[in-house]
């Protein structure tokens, strides 16, 4: 604790210079790896002690698309992502409604149990999932990989959606009833518009998870279900850094777009609950 105190005290004394230095280094610390990847993906003949690549080229992207079969891989990723999103959102809506709006004994305990997969390293249950999927012949199928992703996505969907449904003001629903709306109209005009943002958020979270998911995919994928992270990993193993970088750029762009899209709407602390790119 004294170490921490001295550290903070030191920072405090020179706070302005240090503050800006810290912010600048942070930016560099976070952004530099991406710059390196981006440059590597368009550089040619970049060896030795050079700050920037001497020649620019798009060849590596062509290679990535042709040899790395990126369009096919992208298709796999999107199909698997779509299945995972649909399944986890359905699970999330049902369970979220139960947790958020219905009375039940032992609600907290049940919730903790269902959210348990978040507390355990994915690799530990990924083993069992893979073993089961081998016997069920679900390995290397879209459904199988997507279901493996659901084990990661669904807890977040449940979490986000129970919070959404819990936030629905009972009095507002009553007001709609008093105004003359029957159950169906109440749902269409009041409930749906109010929960739609939550459902969308949960879908985006689920999709990002599925899109980034590596551990479970690695244990359940096959030649027909290579996803983008797997493809990138395989390329790293092959040692072609330039092509790997090109693939990485292709893969990162959608993630950053999603971040830019949601950053104004969602609170960062909600994102922490929502994302986990392992």
């Amino acid at each position: 604790m004294t170490l921490m105190k001295a550290y903070l005290r030191g920072l405090w004394e020179g706070k302005f210079i240090l503050g800006y230095t810290l912010l600048l280094s942070l930016t560099l610390f976070i952004a530099a790896p991406f710059l390196m990847i981006a440059l590597r993906s368009v550089g040619k003949g970049w060896f030795g002690r050079l700050w920037l690549p001497p020649q620019l080229t798009l060849d590596w992207y062509r290679w990535a698309v042709e040899v790395g079969n990126i369009p096919e891989v992208m298709k796999n990723t999107l199909i698997i992502g779509a299945i995972a999103v649909i399944v986890s959102t359905v699970i999330g809506i049902f369970a979220g409604w139960a947790f958020g709006r219905r009375q039940m004994p032992g609600k907290e305990v049940l919730m903790a149990i269902i959210l348990l997969p978040r507390m355990i390293p994915p690799i530990t249950y990924a083993l069992g999932v893979a073993k089961i999927f081998y016997t069920l012949e679900l390995v290397d199928t879209y459904l199988g990989v997507a279901m493996a992703h659901v084990s990661v996505c669904a807890p977040y969907a449940i979490l986000v959606l129970s919070a959404t449904f819990e936030g629905l003001d009972e009095r507002v629903l009553e007001a709609a009833g008093v105004c003359g709306a029957n159950t169906i109209k109440r749902f269409i005009y009041v409930v749906l518009p109010l929960i739609l943002p939550g459902i969308l958020a949960s879908m985006i979270f689920s999709f990002t998870h599925s899109y980034n998911e590596f551990t479970l995919t690695l244990l359940t994928y096959g030649p027909n279900t290579v996803t983008l992270p797997i493809r990138t990993y395989l390329a790293v193993g092959d040692g072609y850094w330039e092509i790997t970088s090109a693939m990485a750029v292709i893969m990162v762009v959608p993630s950053l777009l999603i971040l830019a899209m949601i950053q104004r709407r969602a609170k960062p602390e909600k994102l922490v609950g929502g994302f986990k790119g392992v």
Binding site: L26, A32, S245, A248, V252, G277
Partner: peptide, 20 residues
């Protein structure tokens, strides 16, 4: 900037860090 590592696949982050 702080949120960026959260939405990026760990794999890509590691790749960029190795390069940097």
């Amino acid at each position: 900037m702080i949120l960026v590592p959260l939405v990026i696949p760990g794999l890509i982050g590691a790749l960029g860090l190795l390069l940097f």
